[in-house]
């Protein structure tokens, strides 16, 4: 009994530790100036809903632009990454095919030897990608870990299914599109989530390669507003009373975290059900 209570208390504490910061940030972003002043800063108990901070950051200006940039990078990047990873994983899923062993080693060796930051920087800038959004996508477009997860999944698809399609004269591309992909929706969704989160969260790569602040992705803007303490540069809203800075900052945090929190539940049930666990277990 004591064990039960202790476990209940522990789990409640763990859940609260994750959710409380999110709660405080959302509530503060929706608080009015009076509520914030009264609380002396962050707000724990919501009093009213005041969306003026969101109106401010969405009325053009750097935050709006950064969100568009991040959305663009995430969409294009995820599409490129998922397409190329699925293709390569399928291409590597046939032991005994031409050069299979060598190609597999080529991919797996990336776990053991890797480039340092300086040579990578020289290669990317040498290719003229400085200030190009492709610099946020191409260097990290292939995650060999994701590739291995997909490959493991493809290899567990019954071979008879693919063989019978081959007898019917289907080529490999057709087999991949018509048979393998429909069977792999869940695992591809999880891999796509991993890639998308990676692109949405990109910060350091943008620090390295993007100097033009018209092309900053959202994490870069978040960092400069909140951690480096610059004030959000919001155009629009001339003459109207500015909402409190703290509310604006918290609103920036909310819009940066929102896509992750919103997409997460749809994909998360797959890895709880064991897509990743199964792959990890080998």
């Amino acid at each position: 009994m004591v064990g039960q209570v202790a476990r209940g208390g522990l789990l409640t504490g763990v859940v609260l530790a994750v959710l409380l910061p999110l709660w405080v940030v959302v509530v503060t972003s929706l608080a009015s100036r009076e509520t914030i002043d009264e609380a002396g800063g962050l707000v724990l108990v919501p009093r009213e809903i005041d969306v003026s901070a969101y109106v401010t950051i969405f009325s053009g200006g750097q935050v709006t632009r950064a969100l568009w940039i991040s959305a663009l990078v995430t969409t294009v990047g995820t599409a490129v990454s998922v397409t190329l990873t699925v293709l390569a994983a399928y291409g590597l899923s046939r032991p005994g095919s031409v050069a299979h062993r060598g190609l597999l080693l080529y991919f797996l060796l990336t776990f053991l030897v890797y480039p340092g930051m300086v040579p990578s920087y020289l290669v990317v800038t040498g290719l003229g990608l400085k200030d190009s959004l492709w610099a946020l996508i191409l260097p990290s477009a292939i995650s060999v870990f994701n590739l291995v997860v997909l490959r493991a999944f493809f290899q567990n698809i019954p071979g008879d299914l693919l063989d019978s399609a081959r007898i019917d004269g289907a080529g490999e591309f057709r087999i991949l599109a018509r048979i393998v992909l429909p069977l792999s929706r869940a695992v591809i969704a999880v891999v796509a989530l991993f890639y998308a989160v990676g692109y949405w969260n990109v910060w350091f790569t943008a620090l390295l390669y993007i100097d033009d602040n018209a092309r900053f992705p959202s994490q870069r803007v978040l960092q400069s507003f909140i951690l480096a303490g610059q004030s959000p540069n919001t155009s629009g809203l001339v003459g109207a009373a500015m909402p409190p800075t703290l509310a604006i900052k918290m609103a920036v945090v909310v819009v940066t975290v929102a896509p992750v929190v919103l997409v997460y539940p749809f994909v998360q049930r797959h890895f709880v059900k064991g897509v990743i666990v199964g792959a990890v277990r080998g």
């Binding site: 293709l87 390569a88 095919s97 031409v98 191409l138 590739l147 591309f173």
Partner: peptide
Amino acid sequence: DWPLLVMVAPAAALLLVFHYVPTLG
């Protein structure tokens, strides 16, 4: 097997340019 090789090629090329070249770098 050529379709399989074609499928692997783009990913292999990206790793060559952004992983192995800088590793040698």
